[in-house]
Computed example of a mutant assay.
Amino acid sequence: MRFAATALTAVAVLAAGGAASASNGQQPRGCADRTLLFCEDFERLPPGGPATLDWGVDTRHGLLRVQQQRHNRVLNVHTEGNGRAFLRVDDFAAPGNAFYGRVRLKVDAFPTAPDWAHFTLVEITGSGSSEVVRPVGGQWAPPLQGSFWGVGADGGPTGDWTDWRESAPTTADRWQCFEWQWDPADNRVALWIDGVARPDLSATTTRHGGNPVDFVLPKADTVKLGWQLYQPGPTPAHFDVWLDDIALATRRLGC
């Protein structure tokens, strides 16, 4: 009876924990929710090169392939040198140009050369602004001998910038969950890592890492997820990234 009582207590605690998680607004992963603006968990795709009409591919010296892992399927992103390989969501439209994104990712290694090498994992473009916005990216900082996450942009009046923060070091070879918010009200890009808000990793109209002019979000119509390194001759010479549980929605989904 003592074992039974303990087991019942454990069940009650787990049930309470589940209720608490739901009350925090976090939703279970998966693509059954038809209110999502876009979703891909790779479970319905065969291993190998992408075989879907739901999204496109943007590569240069890189490739994408669906891989079977122990319990699920994921997308492997492989690049050589300063190549790129992205899953590309075209013809994207969010009501009022406001949305949230989520992706689980793992990077095998981050660049340690050349100096100030910077990289992108999520890139968003659209109409009405020439800014190429990079909610998830980072840079190798030689004075600190480390690489750090940072929101960035290029192609617009604010210039080419990655606002990396010493408070956000990258972690190689570990799965992490990244979420971002895209809010045109104040041209805000906000980030969460593993469910924790990171106000240090954000940008707004007047607070960003570029030229002293207003930062203006485009009306998003293309979302790319994958990997691009911009400088030639990097160390290491090639990169592997794994992606899973990609979703775009009008609400924050949680991890």
Rank of each mutant, 00 (worst) to 15 (best):
T9L: 15
A12G: 06
Q27C: 02
G30A: 05
C31R: 01
C31N: 08
F42G: 06
E43F: 00
P46L: 09
G48W: 02
A51V: 15
L53G: 12
L53V: 12
W55N: 06
D58F: 10
T59Q: 12
T59G: 05
G62F: 13
R73G: 08
R84I: 02
D91V: 07
A93G: 01
P95Y: 08
F99A: 05
R102H: 11
L105D: 00
D108L: 03
W116V: 07
W116M: 05
A117N: 09
H118A: 03
F119P: 07
F119L: 10
T125K: 15
S129L: 13
V132G: 11
Q139K: 15
Q145K: 12
Q145F: 11
W149K: 01
A153V: 07
G156D: 11
G156C: 11
P157A: 13
P157R: 06
S167C: 11
A172H: 09
W175P: 09
Q176C: 04
P184Y: 03
N187G: 12
L191Y: 10
L191F: 08
L191P: 06
A197Y: 07
L201T: 12
T204D: 13
T206P: 00
H208C: 13
G209P: 14
G210V: 01
G210T: 07
N211F: 14
D214W: 10
V216R: 13
D221H: 12
T222M: 05
G226Q: 09
Q231H: 00
Q231V: 06
P232A: 03
P232Q: 00
G233K: 10
P236R: 03
P236L: 07
H238Q: 13
D240N: 00
L243D: 06
D245I: 01
D245W: 01
A247M: 04
A249K: 00
A249L: 00
T250L: 02
